[in-house]
Amino acid sequence: MVEKLSSKNKMPIRNVTDSAFASYGRIVTGYDFSELIEYMEQKTEIPDQGNVYVASVGEMEQTRACEMIQKNLYGAMPVQIGYCNGRNTTYNGFEYHKGSEINVAVTDFMLVLGHTWDIKDNTYCADQAEVFFVEKGTAIEMYQTTLHLSPCRVTDEGFKDIVVLPQGTNTPLKDAKDILEPENVLLLQTNKWVLAHPKREPLIKQGAHPGFLGENKELLY
């Protein structure tokens, strides 16, 4: 699959099993995610257009998997489990959080990733990003220094992705953001710093900072 995707896009697309992924995250093994995957397959849909993101799903958070994730991967810190399903094919921008993000691929998809240390003056250049393929059934931890956004589909049907984050992430800010920290120009929601492509109107209209420079590439499949 990665050879086909690399050829179509005329750029390297690597599997998350590749050593190049090590600075972005790691593959998570030893956990039974079957309850979460079953919920996703039976009770969630891929929209006809665009993406749908749900930050927290109570039924998913009442599973044994959630208990094990919270206890072992987050040191007993409260977490939320939700999902992102969709048909995205473009970069659009990047976000990051303070705390790791766990993704479980219910379908195959690609991720466009970067490093927070490459942000300069609240801008990030598209040419520095790398693309990784995540195979169905794979669970990964993305470190808090990893820039990311929506997965990109690799089939006409779209993608389904389980998303685990520290509790409260991606929810509306309760107070006005404090610009004491320069990076908070990028703060869009609770624990969600965003650099959007200037032409990505849905993000810009939400108030995202247009700090993603370069071509808003579309990934072919």
Rank of each mutant, 00 (worst) to 15 (best):
V2G: 09
V2F: 14
E3W: 13
E3A: 10
K8P: 02
N9K: 10
K10R: 15
M11F: 15
M11R: 15
M11D: 12
I13R: 09
N15I: 05
N15T: 10
N15Q: 06
V16Y: 09
V16K: 05
D18G: 10
S19Y: 10
S23H: 15
V28R: 07
Y31S: 07
Y31I: 05
Y31H: 07
Y31P: 00
Q42R: 15
K43H: 11
K43T: 02
T44L: 15
E45A: 04
E45P: 02
Q49C: 12
N51H: 15
Y53C: 13
A55C: 14
A55M: 14
S56L: 14
E61S: 10
R64E: 11
A65M: 03
E67R: 11
M68I: 02
Q70F: 12
G75I: 06
A76E: 11
M77P: 00
G82M: 15
C84I: 14
G86P: 14
R87H: 15
R87D: 09
N88F: 06
Y91F: 12
N92D: 13
N92V: 12
G93Q: 00
F94V: 00
Y96G: 00
E101V: 14
V104K: 03
V106W: 04
V106N: 03
D108H: 09
D108C: 05
M110R: 00
V112Y: 10
G114C: 02
T116S: 01
T116W: 03
I119Q: 03
K120T: 13
A126E: 14
D127I: 13
D127M: 12
A129S: 13
F132Y: 10
F132L: 11
V134S: 04
G137H: 00
M142L: 13
M142F: 13
T145S: 02
T145H: 04
T146R: 00
H148T: 12
L149W: 08
P151Y: 04
P151C: 08
R153Y: 09
R153E: 06
R153G: 04
V154E: 03
D156W: 11
E157C: 05
K160H: 11
K160I: 11
V163C: 06
L165E: 00
Q167T: 02
G168M: 08
L173R: 08
K174D: 08
K174I: 06
D175C: 05
K177L: 04
K177R: 12
P182A: 15
N184S: 05
L186T: 09
Q189T: 04
Q189A: 08
T190P: 06
N191T: 01
K192H: 03
A196Q: 00
A196F: 01
H197M: 12
H197T: 07
E201G: 09
E201C: 09
I204S: 08
Q206Y: 07
H209C: 03
H209G: 01
P210W: 13
F212M: 01
F212E: 00
F212I: 01
L213P: 01
K217E: 04
